[in-house]
């Protein structure tokens, strides 16, 4: 796997925006990026779940990435995209403001996240990537699927 990458210790991340902030997530975790499309609202869903949609016959649970990271909510607009990811057999679409370029980065140059961040966000970060002119927060794909206990999916499912 890794040998196909350009650098042995390199990593390709999919960049995306939430408001003014830049984020990135391991590109291997992102199955595809799609437009928002027709979504169906699910009343009673836990906070952050904005609805469901059909993706080639699969039901995708749509999660507002901003809400999920404790950064407010994604505003609906034409640049909105869904990062489609899979976790334990379920298909998720993370709603983000916009998707940018893929960034190739060297793993050993990822800095630890700033400790003054909101702990909820901090727990989901793998590190910070500084390029010449911008800072990208790299998300930990695994931590992304740890849901806030209070938002109500535990126990029953």
């Amino acid at each position: 796997m890794a040998s196909e990458d350009e650098f042995d210790d390199g990593m390709l991340v999919t960049g995306f925006a939430l408001g003014p902030a830049n984020f990135g997530i391991d590109a291997r975790a992102v199955l595809e990026v799609v437009k928002v499309g027709e979504m169906t609202h699910v009343h009673g869903a836990p906070q952050g779940v904005v609805g469901i949609r059909n993706l080639r016959g699969r039901i995708v649970t749509l999660v507002d990435m901003a809400t999920h990271l404790g950064l407010g909510a994604v505003e609906l607009g034409p640049e909105n995209r869904l990062l489609i990811m899979e976790h334990r057999g379920d298909c998720y679409g993370f709603l983000v403001d916009a998707v940018g370029d893929a960034i190739a980065l060297a793993q050993d140059r990822i800095e630890p996240p700033l400790a003054n961040l909101d702990p909820a966000l901090l727990g989901k970060l793998q590190g910070i990537w500084r390029d010449t002119d911008r800072v990208t927060a790299i998300l930990d794909p695994q931590a992304l699927f740890q849901w806030d206990e209070s938002s109500g999916t535990n126990g029953i499912a």
Partner: peptide, 15 residues
């Protein structure tokens, strides 16, 4: 079936 995040909602049996 609905995903794990929504399975606990008793008012829906699926989609």
């Amino acid at each position: 079936p609905l995903g794990r995040r929504l399975k606990h909602l008793r008012e829906y049996s699926g989609a």
